[in-house]
Amino acid sequence: MINKLVGSDTEAVSDIFDGAIVMIGGFGEAGSPIELIHRLIDLGSKNLTVVSNNTGSGNVGIAALIENRQVSKMICSFPRSTNSVVFPELYRAGEIELELVPQGTLAERIRAGGAGIPAFYTPSSVNTPLAEGKEIREFNGQAYVLEYGIKADFSLVKCETADRYGNLTYHKTARNFSPIMCTAGSMTIVQAKHIVEPGGIDPENVITPGIFVNRVVEINAPQHESILVTNGERYPR
């Protein structure tokens, strides 16, 4: 029998090892798997490379993971935002590495990684500093830059509804990077707001088919980053 449900968020992330590449879903706080991130902080794995669009806000979620000195490198498109304090400080101090990637290139690198495509050419960033040192090739008279697919050892994702097969649906713009990160992770770990019986999600409405998912844990009242930040909360407290 296939059963991807695990009993706790602590158990779900328990094998994330030092030096792992970890993809974390979310665009700002929408879709950010904050409970899984906080359990990763409890676990304390170090020297992680994190692939995520942003670097978090305040002192919770991804920002707290960075503040806890568990992240040696960020691969992202927009490492600052309102209430973003932790990453800018460490970056200016030279204590964290940044690989800045255009957002569409980041998405396509993740998609390619999950789809078995090692590399591709894209027009984005040609003639800019972000293409410096990279292979440029012309197709039909236009220049494109070579970019590589990314795979992750672990992907951490939040979804709305899941079943024991790992079929997932999402909520509105919380979907963002999560479906492609599910495909690119060797071990894809999902926190779901609701768990339903198989068949409880209409097959026509499955967004991430269960084959891309390894573990699902129910977190039925997830915390919201913006509310924690407004309340001045930190993790760990």
């Binding site: 800045l100 957002q103 040609v126």
Partner: peptide, 12 residues
């Protein structure tokens, strides 16, 4: 802090 978002993809 350099941050590019989707701008390079949009103009491309």
């Amino acid at each position: 802090i350099p941050a590019v978002g989707g701008a390079m993809d949009l103009v491309a």
